[in-house]
Write a protein that binds this DNA or RNA. Structure first.
Lengths: 225, 225
DNA sequence: CATAATTGATAGTATTACTATTTAATTTGT
DNA sequence: ACAAATTAAATAGTAATACTATCAATTATG
């Protein structure tokens, strides 16, 4: 099987972590560690110890741990967009394309053999718990100018386009999709930690099925009526 | 005019900040400072300097700055619930109640003369930019056991009840409302910082009007069809 | 082969988030 | 009223965090 590499925006790193053994280890292990410790509990010092390197070496790849998080989340959005491009190939019906996209957004994430160096299951848990922290900062405007959020914006725009193909009159295509993308994560977090805020049930095995149903109901009903 | 005081859950503080001059100053000034510096840039040391007190004194009221944020956000949700109770008084039609609730959620927040000690405009900006950080932590389950999120859950449940009065068959009442409550803030943040993720425009004065239209369209369409 | 550039290691610093202890003020009982 | 008890506030710490500056080793290039 061919091994792929997502093209990441230059500004996401100081030195491309895909280029060196150490760089790949930094990304691989930080995914595991942020998943285990949470973003606040994670430090470059702990990571350095785990990969038998030093803080200063890690700082050569990423300006700080926030940038490393942004890199990981950007990778995730790029990956989703690639999966949606792949999944909607040769399909012309916009309703079907929208359905496929929402299916991919809400489906359970498994390790993708195309990207053997990334633990997608751990990354997905990070996305659910930490992704909002990439932009909920005082430097959001500068970060945005550097293009750090291009992945999320691009994905949002792509799916919003499907909506506008279905109903060009609909006024809130981008708002609805950014809402749906966030809701897809949020509801899983709530299901696990604050269950009274959802109607999902983590103990049942149709969790991701319900999530998809919810998103599809919400999006299609909202644009149609 | 009568001055009110919202009843805050005991676990939100070590010593009730409403009881003393210092306590009230801590809450008042920290609202201003978190609004200015962001939650990450805010420290108890800076706050102590500003109110001419000491770090240790502040730690007598709040275990740490995270708890102080949780307190502020809980106050906000309690305030909203009070406004919705007030606004839906004597109204029996569930559709009208839902409409009123979503109106209150999305309306521009002004200083409330009933609570002269709180700067609601600054607090609203904090809610938009920081509220997710109250639960996106590794201690969310312990915090939840202590009842720190009761305000948000209670509000969500109240509005979800309106939905179930309209359509008892609807499967995702809680999910839809928690999604709408978050979307109402998120879209305003996006409008200001990542405008390609919304269809709102901060330069126009109908921003909050659009936000309400969006929430009402989304919620009513989703539950009706 | 020499020089430059890159990579990694060592050792620091300012700040943060707290805590333990001491001092001062206030309340309470007699 | 006044000492004892209680509570509040100030002082002075500490361990950990988030970096940074410098130095040494390795690799690449003319």
């Amino acid at each position: 099987m061919a091994t792929l590499q997502l093209l990441m925006s230059e500004n996401l790193f100081l030195r491309d972590p895909q280029d060196t053994e150490l760089g790949r280890k930094i990304v691989q292990e930080s995914i595991k560690m942020i998943d285990e410790l949470g973003f606040e509990g994670f430090t470059f010092k702990k990571l350095a110890m785990r990969i038998d390197s030093t803080e200063a070496s890690i700082y050569r790849y990423f300006e700080n741990k926030h940038r490393l998080l942004v890199y990981m989340i950007a990778w995730y959005w790029n990956w989703l967009e690639y999966k949606i491009d792949f999944g909607t190939q040769n399909i012309t019906d916009p309703e079907r394309k929208l359905e496929i996209a929402l299916g991919i957004v809400s489906e359970k994430k498994m390790t993708d053999p195309f990207f053997p160096q990334i633990d997608e299951e751990a990354l997905y848990r990070i996305v659910i718990a930490e992704s909002d922290k990439t932009y909920l900062t005082k430097q959001v405007d500068e970060d945005n100018k550097e293009g750090l959020f291009r992945g999320f914006k691009s994905l949002c725009h792509k799916i919003a386009t499907f909506i506008l193909e279905i109903n060009p009159e609909f006024e809130f295509a981008h708002s609805l999709i950014s809402t749906a993308l966030q809701a897809g994560h949020q509801q899983l977090f709530y299901a696990q930690h604050l269950p009274s805020l959802t109607d999902f049930d983590t103990t049942k095995d149709d969790l991701h099925q319900k999530n998809m149903e919810f998103l599809i109901t919400m999006v299609f009903n909202t644009i149609k009526c």
